[in-house]
Nucleic acid binder design. Sequence first.
DNA 1: CAAATTTGTCTATTGTTATAGACAAGCAAA
DNA 2: TTTGCTTGTCTATAACAATAGACAAATTTG
Lengths: 250, 250
Amino acid sequence: MRILAGALLERKSGVALWRQIADLIRSEIETGAAAKNGKLPPEMKLAERYGVNRHTVRAAIAALEQEGALRSEQGRGTFVCMPRRLSYPIGKRTRFSAGLEGQAETFRTRLVKTGTAKANPQVTRALALPEGTECVSLETVSETDGMPISRAISWFDAARFGNIAEVFAEKQSITMALATDGIPDYVRRWTTIEAHHASPDDIALLKLSSGAIVLVTHSVNEDLDNRAIQYSETRFAADRVELYTKLQDS
Amino acid sequence: MRILAGALLERKSGVALWRQIADLIRSEIETGAAAKNGKLPPEMKLAERYGVNRHTVRAAIAALEQEGALRSEQGRGTFVCMPRRLSYPIGKRTRFSAGLEGQAETFRTRLVKTGTAKANPQVTRALALPEGTECVSLETVSETDGMPISRAISWFDAARFGNIAEVFAEKQSITMALATDGIPDYVRRWTTIEAHHASPDDIALLKLSSGAIVLVTHSVNEDLDNRAIQYSETRFAADRVELYTKLQDS
DNA sequence: CAAATTTGTCTATTGTTATAGACAAGCAAA
DNA sequence: TTTGCTTGTCTATAACAATAGACAAATTTG
């Protein structure tokens, strides 16, 4: 919730007014400030509230409609389709489906691309492998209730997990693929979190509107022998997901 | 690091080209891809690389200069002032100065505003207080090496911490203020993480350029008796700070 | 010292964003 | 059924972003 008060919009900012308004509407939906009974105020009222032209508000709503967050109906009004962001926990055992349990009805991770090549230094450093080690990469998109919420690329030591792509294709889950490959359990070693503007690929694969923001994490998972097994970069639609950490039980 | 490859810029996206390029340059500085010997390639070379006009690149560099990340000198080149983002750990004991130890030379948190009033429901819910409880709020800006990296508003039960503003003014540290008020130690109960476009207040207080992105956290700290003592909203300059979590020692 | 390289500044044009108004069309309410 | 409300669409204009070119000024290089 935006508690730190102040001016809302900034002109000549490099971010179009409609994009700023889209972000505001999305945030205010989350806090309940924008919508009453699942419905936004009329376009003219939003234009007055934000001090912009009605066409500018329409452009913002169009962007949110494209992302599936809103639905406009002529003569009736604009309805909220996604009242709340998903809360994605980052903890000792960070898992996609289990982490979002109870917040959506269906979970799916699909493979977009895979490959095996000598990994770049950032990857080999993260996995504590000799420079130039061959690694398998999996590029995936994760969806809940048919809506993409994140895309990721993960690397694995090819010597150790050479056929993880095939197993993943069959199991549709990295956790299950690793279990098949002799890793019954693993934990999150570390995670870094940044935020960026969505790239054209993010927009395409995550079904975002132009100008959206993504939360970007880099992380390492390790097996119970403290060996790094997976290095990932994950990009989350910031309008659909918030990240969440809590005190771990001792 | 941007490993997920693809197109770099998106026209007509609602985010000005110069703003997108500023974000790219900043990310590429972080990964070492953009700068050699602490110096960017010449403006014309960047224009060719990104497929835009030299003036557009100059606007991007101007934004990063305004934020203190770059410094241009006529006839010489463009130099990197901030090669790396600060890595801010979020863990059991999340502390500003201790968390960034070793990454900067000076740390300072200054009070921007304080007040006492009936807290809104989000605050009382987070602090497990009866609705309408009076709370003290502290609005602060945190800086390292003279550069603002985050701004925050924190709430405390006024009945329990009524004079925390005065103590903070003297100690310049929430941790020390709480110690004075009978809380020698406390831990982070939970944290949520979102990303948004910087508001005009963010831009002013964090010395950001237009169109910048902020990482926004909401969090609760609790004392060792598991009582919630502090609820905060913190906004970090996403170009200056990344958040970091790691496996806690058992 | 001269040439080359690089940043800085100015003016001008084209493309995009935001505003503005008018009116159509669908739906809700009286 | 009529009126009022709300979204949808069209055209036009003003303001802003991006491109374009030219040239000045500072520094580096040969």
